[in-house]
């Protein structure tokens, strides 16, 4: 029934440091993205979400390494690919990236059309004219004027640059796009338009997406399934509706309640005390234990195993008390039922 395009299975990613004090940035991460699904990955800065994105396209820093576990793309293990194999088989053709700050990811001294020509030179047999023509078509798809393809990046506004980046991400017709905070640098109205474009890609281009963001509302609105990360561990994964209706990891519960919702301005925001731990050395404990209001001594004695929530293997929480959470966090879980939105037309 499920047809995963990308699977993470017990993946550990480490960054070596000089003093042998390795940073265990990602520990035992498991999740899978189905074909034609939009998958959201949320968590705070430093939780390992961008490291995961880098690992998928072989873009980890020189001291970073997938030390164990498997990353499968369309059934094939890619975690041990060499640079050359990534270039030939994966990058741009199969998996492309929409990076966080478009302003810095376009070459400032190169016309956009020339950047397309360069990409075509390395990855395709297209001639220069064909390469430019293809970019022209894509400009239309993302709502940019064709006449501007010979412009330099600085002649574009932030929103236009982000659209140009989306056009480049589509250039070699990939199956999976990794969008790393695609809209954080933009104003709300522009953010909404860009997200709307990104949503349209799913059917028009038959794309799957890994959307990395700290903005849980963008994930709830636009993704099919999601994972919440904390301190290098996956905390909870499942369909967005499951994670929203029945969150069972304390971090997933508190994170949802910490997020301001414009519909309920009088709501008290949840506060998550403390900070994530420094991930130096072996991580054999729950990284959320120090911040968790429901932690037990056992939480610090071993990394938690996933628990299927309500018997559903697609919805898992990495918390040893997941079964009790409904009771323990009852105060935090029933908020949406009791309040009424103040927005126009919803009262």
């Amino acid at each position: 029934m499920t047809d995963p395009i990308l699977e993470f299975e017990d993946v550990d990613i480490r960054y070596r440091t000089e003093k042998g004090n390795d940073v265990h940035a990602v520990n035992d991460a498991s999740f899978s993205i189905n074909r034609h699904d939009y998958f959201g990955l949320v968590g705070e800065s430093g939780c390992g979400k961008s490291t995961i994105a880098d690992a998928i396209v072989g873009g980890l820093d020189a001291n970073g390494e997938v030390t164990s576990g498997t990353i499968r793309y369309k059934g094939e293990e890619i975690q041990d690919y060499s640079e050359k194999e990534f270039n030939r088989n994966v990058r741009w053709k199969e998996i492309s990236v929409i990076p966080q700050s478009s302003m810095n990811s376009l070459d400032p001294v190169m016309k956009l059309s020339n950047q397309a020509v360069e990409m075509a030179k390395y990855h395709t047999d297209l001639t220069k004219t064909e390469a430019v023509d293809r970019l022209r078509e894509l400009f239309e798809v993302v709502g940019l004027s064709e006449s501007r393809i010979h412009d330099y990046p600085h002649q574009f506004s932030g929103g236009m640059q982000q659209r140009a980046i989306i056009a480049f991400a589509l250039y070699l017709r990939p199956s999976l796009i990794i969008a790393d905070e695609p809209t954080t640098a933009l104003d709300v109205i522009m953010q909404d338009q860009i997200i709307d474009y990104i949503n349209g890609l799913k059917d028009d281009w038959d794309i799957s997406m890994l959307m990395i963001t700290h903005d849980i509302s963008v994930v709830f609105e636009n993704c099919d399934s999601m994972a919440v990360m904390h301190g290098g561990q996956v905390a909870e994964t499942g369909s967005v509706v499951d994670v929203f209706d029945r969150p069972r990891h304390p971090y997933a519960i508190l994170l949802q309640n910490a997020f301001p919702d414009v519909r309920f301005p009088d709501r008290e925001l949840a506060v998550i005390d403390g900070h994530p731990p420094q991930l130096r050395g072996e991580v054999d404990f729950c990284t959320f234990a120090d911040r968790c209001p429901w932690a037990k001594p056992e939480c610090r004695e071993g990394a938690p195993d996933p628990q299927a929530v309500a018997g559903d293997d697609d919805h898992q929480a990495w918390c040893i008390r997941a079964d009790e959470m409904e009771e323990l966090a009852a105060d935090h879980l029933d908020r949406n039922a009791t309040e009424e939105s103040i927005l126009e037309g919803e009262r």
Partner: peptide
């Protein structure tokens, strides 16, 4: 107001 994403699927 219409552009604000709502954290509710």
């Amino acid at each position: 107001i219409q552009s604000i994403p709502i954290p509710d699927p």
